[in-house]
Each structure stands twice: as C-alpha cells, then as structure tokens.
Write a protein that binds this DNA or RNA. Structure first.
Lengths: 221, 221
DNA sequence: TAGCTAACGTACTAGTTCGTACATTGTGAG
DNA sequence: CTCACAATGTACGAACTAGTACGTTAGCTA
C-alpha cells in the first residue's frame, strides 16, 4: 500500500497533484473495502483526506471511476509481487510449493485487496470489464506456473494433467477463502482461519494438498 | 428457494401473513444478492412484492433485521441439504468424494446464497453474530466428515491428520471460489469457471485433490 | 351480526448523498 | 514580473432512501 504521509506545509494550500491523487486512492481503498461500493461514502473519503470532495471529482470523475482506479492500483500491487517470483532454479515440487506460499502470504497480508475483489464480484466485474488497464493483463504468475508445470509433467513427476489456469484457481481458492470468508466461517464453526497459531498449519496444508494432487497416481482412465 | 406463486385473488386484498412474509423474503434475497446490503433498496423490494414497504417494517422491523432473516433462511436451506447426506454406507474414499460433490453441486445451484455469504463477510458477519438461530448451529456436514475421517484414519487409508473443520474448509474453498469469484476470474484470465462444458472437469478435480491429499504418503516428520 | 384485532395501504418526512456551479490561489513559463 | 492555467476550496441542490404516522379492511369469534 503506497501510503502518503508528509505533514502539511503549515498555512496555505499545498499543490501536489500526484500526492493528492495518491492520498485519495489510499483512503478510498480503505473506505470501499470497509463498506462495499454502495456503502462507501464519497464525503467520508474526502473527510479523511487532506483535500476536498471536489478533488475526487476533479481527478477521477465520479464514485464509479474512483472505484475502478482503486481496483487498478490494487491489482498492480499483486502483479508486482508476482513479478518478483524467482523459482525457476528450484525443482518443480519445491517451485510449486514456493509459489503457493507466495500466494498464501500475499493474500494474508492484503485483506483489503481480498475485500475489493469480493465486492467487484458482487458487481459482476463490471469495473474490470470497463477498465482498459485491467482488461487483458495476464497474471505473471500464470507464466511461471506454466513453465513449472511443463517441467514437472515432462519429467514424469507430475501425473495430473491440469493446466496453469486451473492450478492457479486451486491455489487461489484456498488462500482467498481463508481471508475472505474468515468472518462467517469463524462465526459458524468457531475457528479463526487467520489465527497466527494456525498459520503454519494452513500454509503447509496448502502445499501438501497441491503437491499431493499433482503427484498422485491417477486411475488409468 | 421457497418461492411463492399463487395468483392474487382478483379484487380485494388477500390476508395471509405467512405468504406475505415468504414473498418478502424471496424478493429480499434476490435484491440483497444483487446489490449488497447497502446497495439493496427497501423500496425496490417492496415494489416487487404484492405488498408494501409498510409490511417489511411490520414483519421484520428494518432493513438490517430483514437481511438477517434472509441469511437465516438461506443457511437453513444448506443445512437441510446436508441433513439428507447419506454416505455412511460407502467406503471412506467414496464417501469423501460424494461429500465433496454434494458441496460442489449445492454451491453451483445456489449462487445467491454464495453472494449473500460474501456480502455478510464484507460486514464481518455481524448479522450472524446477532442472530440467535445462526449463532451455534454446527453444520451437519461436519459430523459426517468427522465420522468418515475417523474411519479412514483408523483403517490407515487416510494418512493426513486433518480434522473435520479443516477438511470442510478445503472443500468449501474450492466450491465457493468457483462461484463467488467467477466474474473477476473470468475477466482476468478469460476462463468461465461455471461453463457447463468444464463442470465435470472441476467436479472431478475437486475429488481428486481431496483424496490425493488425504491418502498421500506424508514425509515422516 | 357486532366487534375486535391482525393485516394491510397511503402519504409523508427527516436526513442523507452524489454531484456541481462558482470562486480562489499557487506556480512555472516566458 | 506577469500571466495563464492547473489545482484547490466553498457552498449548495436535486434526488434519493430508510423509516413512520395515520387511516382502512378482512375475517374470526362471541
């Protein structure tokens, strides 16, 4: 989260377009994640900024476009994390496990991102569809998965014939659910999925699950 | 979904408290699922009912309580489906696979339920916490899982030392993600997780994954 | 059949919320 | 130094929205 924290120059306005925009995005991210799109209040966002509501409309055009901008920046962060993925030197099993751990860690560390994605799904991804930036950016993680999978399958280590997108879905679903559904799951089953005491347990469980799936003897269909 | 469809008696009001309440709940379920809690409009719910907004407040008290009532009924439906689970006669592997399939099918058939749960998580499960009905109802599925797991572990078939709650989370996460994140996933990766053509593929994948995890040789820690 | 009450409808209000018209000031270019 | 425009602030309004005050009717019961 690129947060902006310079103290206001005492007396007189500050004129810094980039800073103002970044600050609006920071606060808007929190507010949308807190209350959903409809529940978020433009006035509330403005109030928690060092600028005014006028600026939100000046820079972003409206509530809808602001939400889109928030989404775009949130996705940029995860793409960046995936860019830094360096697992090509590992053997396929270790590489997949490492990849799963990176996803696990990122989701855990960015609950606001998870909430934004949940919210965007309630709105059937209209903002992503409308965004040029988000439209056709394939995840860098996908390319990595593709290469590891190929290696593992050629060497005969991986028996499953999944493709990269499906494996990505499998890993994401576990990591996403753990964060997104934390509250209802906790309320209904009395178990906090985010409890630090169980963190390693779930992190290992995810890796075990994925590797077990990839390396299991498949019924000769 | 208990839907109400009797034609209105022509001329003159009908007086049927149960029917009115059920109809309000039906419409409210759709409206909340469509737009989230804050996005849902009480007036819109009333308009699509054969009764008026006054009745919503008469029977439910307010928007918040109406949402709670909607949640309560939605959870009652899934509990009912789980009650009908009859897998005790199967061997552990088949039983787990069957259980996963039932979850898979139910989630797919009740997208509104999934959306409501997503929405409730955005609100940090306050309505579940406030509800007496939803507070301490353990899922019937959990008991079933517990028994199957015990069987499988005693017979040495299952090597993993998961407990029922974690296995439930594992199965749910895949099924939930597939429905809940359908839109963003489709928009970003160009793959519709709900495409009927891939339904069997994912249904099998889930079973394979869970069984592989449960039966894999674990590293002797 | 009179009367009582649960069930229902109409019309309204107080407060909110997104968005904008208009006025103002900082600052870099020339 | 000044001038043009980007950046900013103030004040307001139109539309919406949850919730309610008050009046009406159906249908059971005594």
């Amino acid at each position: 989260m690129t947060s902006v924290e310079e103290p206001a120059r005492p007396g007189g306005r500050i004129r810094d377009a980039a800073r103002t925009q970044a600050e609006i995005l920071d606060v808007a991210t929190q507010e949308f994640a807190r209350a959903g799109f409809a529940g978020a209040r433009v006035d509330e966002i403005a109030a928690r900024t060092r600028t005014t509501k006028r600026m939100i409309y000046y820079y972003f055009g409206g509530k809808e476009q602001l939400f889109t901008a928030v989404l775009e920046r949130a996705y940029a962060v995860i793409r960046e994390a995936e860019q830094g993925l360096d697992v090509e030197h590992l053997d396929p099993v270790a590489a997949i496990r490492r990849l799963a751990e990176v996803t696990f860690d990122h989701h855990e560390q960015h609950p606001d991102f998870i909430r934004l994605v949940s919210i965007e799904n309630i709105h059937e991804a209209v903002h992503i569809a409308a965004s040029e930036k988000l439209g056709k950016i394939g995840s860098p993680a996908l390319d990595v998965i593709r290469r590891i999978l190929e290696q593992g399958q050629q060497s005969g280590l991986f028996t499953a014939d999944v493709d990269a997108v499906d494996l990505h879905a499998m890993i994401s679903s576990f990591c996403f659910f753990r964060v997104a559904n934390r509250h209802t799951f906790g309320a209904l089953f009395g178990r906090d999925l985010i409890d630090p005491a169980r963190r390693e347990h779930y992190r290992t469980m995810l890796g075990d699950m994925v590797i077990a799936y990839l390396t299991a003897e498949r019924a000769t269909a």
